[in-house]
């Protein structure tokens, strides 16, 4: 029975859907990386994704324009990110707790809007696969990598951009300084709060986009609790990836492959109860966190609010 899983065609299927399914992890994980590197743990990603997913779905369905949907997701994500920033930076709230507040709020709000505005599960015709000329003609690899939709390409493009910004630009340097030693950064004239506001708001936007990638590019549907923990896993990926964009990419691929594998286990009707298949990513997350803690050290100022003396 298990050998059925390893025919060339199935492996190809797993690979293709694995590449696709990494998209939301990448957007949310990269956004979260910036927040955490600057010292703010945003546990509200799940809630931001849900609201973003709904906004994108609703706007795309009403206007018929997918890009307006993306814009709506970015906008509500930014708003929720800004709110999270205000609560955790200006008001110095416990970040873990306020994140859970945003999760519940986003879970409730997206469902409330869904029930009042749509009422039933509907579909939308989302982003279509866009074959990249020439590259998509490469046998096997072309189908896997170069025949995806635009939001998928965007997610992969984001990784080198984020790595560049983090490691090679002044802004990236400020982000890292603020997350490692805010007092020193402050004395050098870096506006600690401003940098954190920017990273957390950016994180919110990318979480919103992650939600949009689910509702109008991958699943093309919205329902209550569409993300079911995906946003939390994205936060865990940041730990796993050692707070580096490339690390997040590695983690995202690992998780999405496991996800794709569990979908195929169900499709093929293998004698594994579906609940146990669905459980795999969550269990893997715990394992990943245990592995990560042995390897890398989190940003020193993570979850610590900055208080300027005097």
């Amino acid at each position: 029975m298990i050998s059925e899983l390893f025919t060339a065609q199935v492996l190809l299927g797993i690979l293709t859907s694995g590449i696709r399914l990494a998209t939301p992890y990448l957007y949310a994980g990269i956004g979260e990386t910036f927040g955490q590197r600057s010292g703010v743990l945003n546990l509200g990603v799940e809630g931001q994704m849900l609201v973003g997913a709904f906004a994108a779905f609703y706007v795309a369905r009403k206007t018929g324009n997918l890009w307006l949907g993306v814009l709506a997701a970015l906008l509500v994500g930014a708003l929720m990110g800004l709110a999270m920033a205000f609560i955790s930076i200006t008001l110095r709230a416990k970040q873990g707790i306020s994140g859970i507040g945003f999760f519940l709020f986003g879970l409730g709000l997206s469902d409330l809007l869904f029930q009042t505005l749509l009422g039933s599960v509907q579909t939308v015709s989302g982003f279509r696969p866009l074959a990249i000329p020439l590259l998509s003609k490469i046998p096997v690899l072309g189908e896997v990598f170069f025949n995806q939709n635009l939001l998928v390409y965007g997610a992969y493009l984001l990784v080198p951009i984020a790595a560049f910004v983090m490691d090679k630009t002044t802004f990236g340097l400020k982000v890292r300084a603020v997350g490692e030693n805010p007092e020193a950064a402050d004395s050098l004239g870096v506006n600690v709060s401003l940098v954190r506001y920017i990273t957390v708001t950016l994180g919110g936007m990318l979480s919103g986009l992650a939600g949009a990638s689910l509702s109008i590019a991958l699943l093309n549907v919205f329902q209550q609790n569409l993300t079911s923990g995906l946003g939390f896993i994205a936060v865990a990926l940041v730990y796993f990836g050692g707070w580096r964009p490339w690390g997040v990419l590695a983690g995202a691929l690992l998780f999405s492959m496991v996800n794709a594998l569990q979908l195929w286990v169900q499709v093929l009707g293998l004698p594994i109860p579906s609940e146990f298949a669905v459980m795999m990513p969550y269990v893997l997350t715990i394992v990943a966190l245990v592995v990560a803690v042995q390897r890398v050290r989190p940003p020193t100022a993570l979850t610590k609010p900055f208080i300027r003396e005097g």
Partner: peptide, 22 residues
């Protein structure tokens, strides 16, 4: 009205609460 109204209210109660602990 959707029952998730209760959930939204719960989420919202936490924010002024967190702000207040300041």
């Amino acid at each position: 009205l959707p029952a998730s109204m209760g959930l939204v209210l719960q989420g919202m109660i936490l924010f002024p609460m967190l702000a207040g602990s300041l």
